[in-house]
């Protein structure tokens, strides 16, 4: 029998037993630092800055849906007080105007929602109002999309579909500079 060299006798292996421990350590680090909660919110496209105020008095009164939120978080919609819960339905009726009433918008493409708030308005109330107005449009888009393509409206739809929907019911929301009431 040939004499074994010292090299052969050595086991050429790294002990991998501690590998699991190292991996565990890293795993626990990432478990602790991780935040899976993703960020969701209402996506808004702000209008570009311009010095002059947009003049909505030029528009026909029937096409403007003015929403005022005051510093007491009360709602005034087209000179009428309203509860936030009723806003969505009312806005939908205004935009679509299914009964062709003369005091509501001529057609969805002409409808303009004008939102105005005080500097003292609660952010939560403001967002709730914005949410309801956006919701009104979302519901209308869903309805139209169901009628046209048989599916619900969503941001994942092909661009052509979304363009077709938006051409019929564009989202027009103008925000006026707030009035200086009730600032903290």
């Amino acid at each position: 029998m040939a004499k074994k060299s010292s090299r052969d006798r050595m086991k050429n292996e790294i002990n991998a037993g501690s590998m699991a421990d190292i991996a565990f350590l890293l795993l626990i680090f990432f478990l602790v630092t991780t935040t899976i909660a993703e960020d969701k919110g209402i996506l808004v496209k702000l209008p570009p800055w311009s010095e002059e105020e947009p003049d909505i008095t030029k528009l026909k009164e029937r096409n403007v849906y003015s929403v005022l939120v005051n510093a007491q978080n009360q709602l005034l919609v087209r000179e009428q007080p309203m509860r936030i819960e009723d806003l969505r339905e009312n806005a939908q009726e205004f935009i679509a105007n299914p009964m062709k009433r003369p005091d509501l918008s001529e057609k969805p493409t002409k409808a303009i929602i004008s939102l105005k708030n005080d500097r003292g308005t609660n952010y939560e109330t403001y967002l709730k109002v914005y949410n309801e107005l956006k919701g009104a449009y979302n519901d209308l888009w869903n309805e139209l999309c169901q009628r046209k393509f048989g599916i619900d409206y969503s941001e994942e739809l092909p661009v052509a579909y979304r363009k077709a929907i938006k051409a019929e019911i564009p989202f027009v929301l103008s925000e006026a500079e707030p009035t200086n009431f009730g600032e903290e």
């Binding site: 969701k40 496209k45 570009p48 967002l127 949410n131």
Partner: peptide, 10 residues
């Protein structure tokens, strides 16, 4: 000119 804004909400 930062016009894309997201109001974070739950």
């Amino acid at each position: 000119g930062q016009l894309r804004v997201n109001y974070s909400a739950k």
